[in-house]
Design a protein around this nucleic acid. Structure first.
Length: 654
DNA sequence: GCGATCAGCT
DNA sequence: CACAGCTGATCGC
């Protein structure tokens, strides 16, 4: 839960995600996403009154956030005062005007995708007081930050003065959270194993009353060709990409409907909507409750699905980045200052601040590092592969070779025109260059899983995976579970099937009924045949690496530095000594440029950093490059890990 | 009657 | 397993 007070040191005349107290005096407001803990005071009478008499005060947010906000009539008084920025990554000039004195300050703000819930964004401010990033809440995968065009200036990472950071899971206890794709895969398999039995076998997704599960709904809808039953569709009226996957018709096998006493109803084998089978008999229901599950640094095998007993399951699902994901994010941008917005559970603000210190520029030593661009074939930094086999890899990694996108927009200057007409510095959007929404499908082997959110529990573990005991198909026998794959689906990391050419030329269409589903489903499955292989970390290297495609490696961000270990020990946090100083394959493969860090003086005239070219990795060898080229030539979309964010969590949805 | 805050619940 | 939000009680205006 955010405890950010609303204001940044550098630009104190704007307020973000807080609208009460001192924030009542702000010259402009910013809303990162539509969760209540970021909307404190937003419907307060004092603010309402202020708006009534103001010509210049505006609320800036993404297009989707505006729609979601205004779908609640309590906020309709904001309507004339909202400036929604439809396109992410499109710098907008804003004049911050003091209505009493006429004093004015110009800033340029850029919305960056945050991957937290529909419409969620981060705000990047650039102005006389430096470049400052307010992250709001975010879930970015490792490597995503390197693909954010507007955190770069030319080949370099922008010089970021301060980051106001979502630190929900910035604690080594939350070292790893399975990737979005791995979680989705686990849920898909569980759903499939249940609903395939009969039309009377239904799934209830026990989701909380908050935005953020739409990604799950749309993917399940697409996968199984049935829309998800929900209580209301009103808020998604202008978002067909979401709307088309939801229904208010109870006659479906997947429900996410809610009722004040839904848990109680479920225990009595009833859906919250009260739906029964066609013949009036009770349905056969399982519930899946999305919950955050985390795993310690040394946890090797994990499960994204946990059976709670009876027909109740928990499925891993996180709205926030894990410790290692946040660390990756910070390591990349290396800001001068980092301010936590959230106090993680069982921690104090002081402890979080201590944990963040090593990530600040002063301590990370980044200012000394010179990175050499790779050249024509640029790719994302790949500094956190920590898996030893394909199962683990799918669970935690979604890294892929991602050619850096052509830079399409350059924010040169902000000729702000005043808040009524914020200047769109460029009309092109990054989203235009991103792939169509699609489900992410990996190879079908079920995860050999051991549940562990206990980071003390770092030894070999017995599988605890359990599944409905009345099922005919036993997914609990994880080694034997091989759900049928649609034809044309290649396993991740392989090219066992030729590309389906037509899929690359079929305009993205939305399945609006079941009849349209199979083809769409297949198309999207085919499109998502991507390489997600990543290199084994030294932590878990006891299994053969079966990944036969491009290998990248790194050790940087998954390693805890000695300084951190010392810090953790001061804080009473256990760290893994094996991760320190051990010679590993990955360490041996450090890129030259990194090995030479500190030796080469940076071009000091610029305060920006050069773009890191995959620290901790070796340059691709000819074999690897060949494979990459084959994939590119085959039309495979290698951009994978960030696409889901743009699909659902951006202002792109119209 | 309305808003703020907190405990309790999920 | 813990994010986000609801309900209901209480208090103050």
């Amino acid at each position: 839960m955010s405890s950010f007070a609303g204001r940044m040191k550098e630009y104190p005349t704007v307020s973000l995600d807080r609208f009460d107290r001192e924030n009542l005096h702000a010259r402009a407001y910013f809303l990162s996403h539509c969760h209540k803990d970021h909307m404190k005071g937003l419907k307060g009478p004092l603010l309402k009154r202020k708006l009534k008499f103001s010509l210049t005060v505006k609320l800036y947010c993404s297009f989707v956030t505006k729609e979601l906000l205004l779908s609640n009539p309590k906020y309709s008084f904001w309507e004339e005062h909202i400036v929604s920025i439809r396109h992410l990554d499109s710098p907008t000039g804003i004049s911050l005007i003091d209505e009493k004195t006429g004093e004015s300050e110009d800033v340029v703000v850029t919305l960056l995708p945050a991957g937290h819930c529909p419409g969620s964004v981060m705000f990047l401010f650039e102005g006389s007081q430096g470049t400052v990033l307010y992250t709001g809440d975010f879930r970015l995968a490792i490597g995503d930050v390197a693909r954010m065009e507007f955190l770069h200036s030319g080949n370099r990472v922008k010089d970021i003065q301060s980051v106001y950071l979502d630190t929900t899971f910035f604690d080594p206890r939350y070292y790893q959270i399975p990737s979005r794709e791995a979680c989705l895969k686990g849920i898909k398999e569980l759903v499939e194993d249940w609903i395939c039995h009969s039309p009377n076998h239904v799934v209830w997704l026990n989701c909380k009353a908050a935005y953020g599960y739409e990604y799950l709904f749309t993917n399940l809808s697409q996968e199984f060709g049935c829309q998800i039953h929900v209580n209301s569709l009103q808020m998604f009226q202008k978002m067909p990409e979401i709307l088309s996957h939801m229904t208010m018709d109870r006659a479906t096998q997947i429900h996410a409907c809610r009722h004040p006493k839904d848990e109680e109803m479920f225990r009595a084998n009833r859906l919250p909507c009260g739906c029964l089978a066609k013949d009036g008999t009770p349905l056969k229901i399982i519930s899946i409750k999305p919950s955050t599950m985390w795993f310690g640094e040394r946890t090797r095998k994990t499960s994204v699905i946990v059976r709670m007993g009876g027909s109740s399951y928990r499925a891993c699902f996180s709205f926030h980045s894990s410790y290692s994901e946040i660390k990756d994010f910070l390591t990349y941008i290396c800001p001068v200052n980092i301010y936590p917005n959230v106090v993680p559970l069982c921690r104090t603000m002081e402890e979080v601040a201590e944990l963040l210190k090593p990530m600040c520029r002063e301590h990370c030593g980044r200012a000394e590092i010179v990175y050499k661009p790779l050249g024509v074939l640029k790719r994302t930094r790949e500094n956190c592969c920590r898996v030893s086999d394909t199962d683990d890899e799918e669970l935690f990694e979604e890294l892929a070779m991602v050619p850096r996108r052509k830079k399409v927009i350059v924010a040169e200057e902000a000729n702000a025109q005043g808040p009524d007409k914020p200047q769109q510095i460029s009309s092109e959007t990054l989203a235009d260059y991103l792939p169509e929404p699609r489900p992410s499908v990996h190879s079908a082997n079920y995860l050999d899983c051991t549940e562990s959110n206990d980071d003390e529990d770092d030894g070999e573990q017995e599988p605890t995976e359990t599944l409905p005991d009345d099922q005919t198909k036993k997914t609990s026998d994880v080694q034997e579970f091989h759900p049928p794959q649609p034809s044309g689906v290649a396993s991740a990391g392989t090219l066992s099937h030729p590309p389906l050419w037509d899929t690359f030329f079929t305009p993205g269409s939305l399945p609006t009924d079941e009849s349209s589903e199979p083809e769409n489903s297949q198309n999207s499955l085919a499109r998502s045949s991507v390489c997600t292989c990543s290199r084994s970390p030294e932590l878990f290297t006891d299994e053969a690496d079966e990944c036969d495609s491009l290998r990248l490696s790194s050790s940087q961000s998954t390693h805890i530095s000695e300084a951190e270990v010392e810090l953790f020990s001061q804080l009473g946090i256990q760290t893994n000594p094996e991760s320190l100083g051990g010679t590993s394959e990955t360490e041996n493969m450090l890129h030259e440029s990194q090995a030479g860090q500190g030796n080469v003086p940076d071009s000091q005239e610029s305060s920006d950093f050069e773009l890191p070219p995959t620290p901790g990795s070796k340059p691709p060898n000819p074999e690897e490059l060949k494979e990459l080229y084959i994939k590119l030539a085959a039309g495979e979309d290698l951009r994978v890990s960030i696409s889901h964010i743009y699909s659902f969590y951006s202002g792109r949805i119209k």
